[in-house]
Simulated assay, not measured.
Amino acid sequence: MAVTQEQYLSGRILLAMPGMFDPRFERSVNVMCVHDEHGALGIGIGHLRDGVRFRELLEEVGIDPGDAPDREVHHGGPVEPGRGFVLHSTDWGGQDTIAVEPLCALSASLDVLRAIAEGRGPKDWLIALGYAGWGGGQLEGEMRQHGWYAAGGHREVLFDTPAEGRWAATWRAEGIDPSFLANTTGRA
Rank of each mutant, 00 (worst) to 15 (best):
M1F: 08
A2E: 10
V3A: 08
T4I: 01
S10D: 11
R12L: 09
I13V: 02
L14T: 01
A16R: 07
M17E: 04
D22H: 05
R24D: 08
F25V: 13
E26A: 11
V31C: 07
V31T: 05
M32Q: 10
C33Q: 07
L41W: 04
G44S: 13
H47S: 14
H47F: 11
G51C: 10
G51V: 06
R53G: 03
G62N: 11
G62T: 03
D64P: 15
D64N: 13
D67L: 14
P69N: 04
D70F: 06
H74F: 02
H74M: 13
H74V: 03
P78W: 00
E80S: 14
G84N: 05
G84S: 02
F85A: 00
V86C: 12
L87C: 01
H88K: 11
G94D: 10
Q95H: 15
T97L: 11
I98Y: 11
I98E: 07
A99F: 13
V100R: 07
P102I: 01
L103V: 03
C104H: 01
C104V: 04
S107D: 14
S109V: 07
V112Y: 00
L113I: 00
A115E: 02
A117W: 05
A117L: 01
W125L: 06
L126R: 14
I127G: 08
L129I: 01
L129A: 14
A132E: 05
G133Q: 12
W134G: 10
G137C: 05
Q138W: 13
M143V: 09
G147P: 11
W148T: 06
W148L: 12
Y149E: 11
A151C: 04
L158H: 02
T161R: 11
T161S: 01
P162I: 02
A163P: 11
A169E: 12
T170K: 00
T170S: 12
A173G: 06
D177H: 01
S179W: 03
S179K: 08
L181Y: 02
A182H: 07
A182F: 02
A182P: 08
N183Y: 10
T184N: 09
T185W: 12
T185K: 14
G186K: 14
R187G: 08
A188D: 14
